[in-house]
Design a protein around this nucleic acid. Sequence first.
RNA 1: GGGCGGUUAGCUCAGUUGGUUAGAGCGCCACGUUGACAUCGUGGAGGUCACAAGUUCGAGUCUUGUACCGCCCA
Length: 932
Amino acid sequence: MTIPPNADDLPSRYDPAQADAPLYEAWESSGVFGVTPDSSKRAGGTADPFVIVMPPPNVTGVLHMGHGLNNSVQDVLMRWRRMSGDAALWLPGTDHAGIATQNVVERQLAVEGKTRQDLGRDAFLDEVRTFVAEKGGVILRQLRAIGASCDWKRTAYTFSPELSRAVREIFVRWYEDGLIYRGHRVTHWCSRCLTALSDEEAESHPAQGLMYHVRYALASDAARGIIVATTRPETMFGDVAIAVHPEDSRYAGMVGKQVINPANGAKIPVIADSYVEREFGTGALKITPAHDANDFEVGKRHKLKMPIILSPEGFVVEGTDAAGRVPAEYVGLERFDARKRVAKELERSGALVKSEQHHHSVRKCYRCDTVVEPRLSDQWFVKMAPLAAPALQAVKDGRVRILPERWEAVYVNWMENIRDWNISRQIWWGHRVPVFYCQSPATGCPAHFASRDDAPACPACGGATRQDEDVLDTWFSSQLWPFSTLGWPDKTPDLAAFYPTDVLVTAPEILFFWVARMIMSGMYVTRSTDNPDGVAPFHSVYLHGTARDAQHRRMSKSLGNGIDPLDVVDAYGADALRWTVIAGMGLGSDLLLDHENIEQSFAPGRNFATKLWNIGRFLLLQVGTVPVRSLSDISDAELAPADHWILGRIDAAIAAADTALGPARPADGNAWRPDELRQGLRLDEYAEAARAFVWNDLADWYLEHAKTRLQPGHAEREVTRALLVHAFDRALRLLHPVMPFVTESLWKKLPGRDRSELLARASWPAADRRSAGAAADEFDAARSAISAIREIRSDYAVPAGQIVQAALSGTAPLRSAAAAREAAFIARVARCELVAEAAVPPGAAARRVLAGGVEVVVSLEGVVDLGRERDKLSAELDQLQTQLDALRVRLANEKFTSKAPAAIVEAERTKEREWATRAAQLVAKLTALGGA
RNA sequence: GGGCGGUUAGCUCAGUUGGUUAGAGCGCCACGUUGACAUCGUGGAGGUCACAAGUUCGAGUCUUGUACCGCCCA
């Protein structure tokens, strides 16, 4: 005989601080998170692969709530699929984060008064590597604290030798395919980071600024002029023309004439270009080709000079083609100082017609918030249109779905208007552009060429080469993540087994930065003669919301409104954190957390873990540790109505969870069918379904009911023990993906369980279909009776300790008989004594007619207020009568009965009969109470 | 300026192909410690589904317009 645990072994609360870490250790050391390629169906195994690649956090980053949310979602999916028998791979890793990491190290150097240039490229890179070695990877350890079930052996890094090889490979392929080219054009330039940025990296921010209206006088006739509006008068030194619309009658006579730039006295032509919008501003534009992307295009069309008048650092200079254009007193002025000074000077000279407040947007560097400057330079670009076409089609065909749906429209809109991608950065930390130049170019030597090898010889003359100084956009390497992490460009077993992956879980902010580019590059590298479009790297993109505070502001360091996930883990446990983010976040909605009231945000999760823990505690204390009979060995005849009922509830909960989470992949293996395109990934609905089952069915009803049957010597004790353990086992399995720690902790303790077994590798539950509906309905009749008696007690404020007399009867004898069979249960939980109806004094009783045909009468001798009971019944009757009248009008309407579907009409007729019966019963009760 | 979404209970949100008594969690109110759990239990209040018009036997759900809020891109 096994000795049952005693209450001292089981405190009344789960203690995550003590229990969580050893559980994680047990999972990790058991290898349950690991998966080998040979288990995948694609590589000769038997299991469907299910793969998620983790959006790699910055290598030196630390965990914030966004990571907590992002990784909780992924872990729920991974644990669900792992339990479902898939070859489940969650591949973790980090991103070298070019500009961001370089900035951090540069700031450290700045404290010592040094710049990266002081150190030189090699020494600086050593400095960054040292920093990454010291600080890097912290976030991966932090992810373990929230329970992330990654296959850590495969931890990848975008700047590792292996992934760097993938970067070179695709660069060279694209270069050789003509998809990468050198472009001389205006790009966004960050004067603090000293690098060009992509369009996506220069974020628009609303701004309030001054719009200056400046008059450019005609050189031949100072009395005439053109007024131009600009927000950046400092760029006037770089003006090379004034452009008007060719059909604009206001300026018809001026085209071809010269005007004088009031900022520097230079004579510049008035040109006509249909790019100018006549309705906008004065209808005339100053053209500064080197410092505005649109002006650059105009300048190209008109073969204008492109003087650069700002230094890379943002100071006024006479740069390329600008000799003589900048008055000496402006040289060396910071751009915003120069703006003020130019404006002042224009005002003094009378050229400034007016200046007015103006709403516009300015673009800022996404890494340092510096206002970016459009600047002419030579950069490497990827030609996007050929790559975008198949990636757009894949989404339109349903080979890739984007959830929530509205982001799909955003994706389509972006892809249809895609612009070329500037991939070169003038920083040092990153993959160096693998383009080489001949050191002593002779006739026949290429201007440049791309190479997989370092220091290749010039292919034409065989001479020495030098490598391009620039490095690649950090997103250039992360776009390869779904296949570079699996060994591409080699044909590895991993790549065969796990590409394509399944779900990509991330935030909408990086839909273009990362997701779209992964689809494009993933399809590109998997093109074949059989499949010219290639294979998209995942079939589902799940875009989750943002962590925000109670005022809906994005959580951020600068606002100080963040919540540290690790603080939450310490105070409430990882399960509570996960519960809050999963249960609290509908598909696509933001997660609102009040940083000033952590308790309100995370207590529900902790409370639920406590509830679960106490169900387990009750079960272990009452059921003991002796193994229980298996459900399949118990005959239907041994099952009580309550058993049938809980078995039905289990099946319903499993079905609800499966519907909320799945399908895991498209049924036909290629594209989503329209009917399944928007299904699944409702993690909050899954969590709620599991919670409702555990709390509202198992704990509130079945467990209460079991208390009597578990008494030592009770004939049904063994069946009850078995059913309780079965139900709780199913509950723990269902909840494991969202609350892995407390469920694992409890599951190990269930009777008959071998301590070495892990819930993390147990099977996901499937419906038993043992529940007989009629038997379950009997238990429902008892539940209804209990609720009715409780309502009556509450209505009449019967003291909680007082036992009342109650009788069950009604028009549905079977149901009332069934309810009567649960008399002991009803009596105990409704705190009543069940008597014959005749024993209840008619004048001092409250009655309820229940939907199932059971009628409940509660004797309230000395408590009941007859008038109040009459009012109550009248009110109920009134409401019912109103609805019944409306129903009868509807049924009397010939248009309804003839046009509505027969099934609907029949349902309405059935309802009419039921309501009429119930109304008649209510009338009878009222009459009995002396009412009208 | 172009594209897209939203407005349902005090708060945050569900609400399937239109089917007629609109749901949940949290919060709120009342009562309560009955041997798993007060991080709990029992009961309750609370919504003319933003507004207007239309389609329909029937509209939270479809159409159009208005107001307000938000997102993406310029």
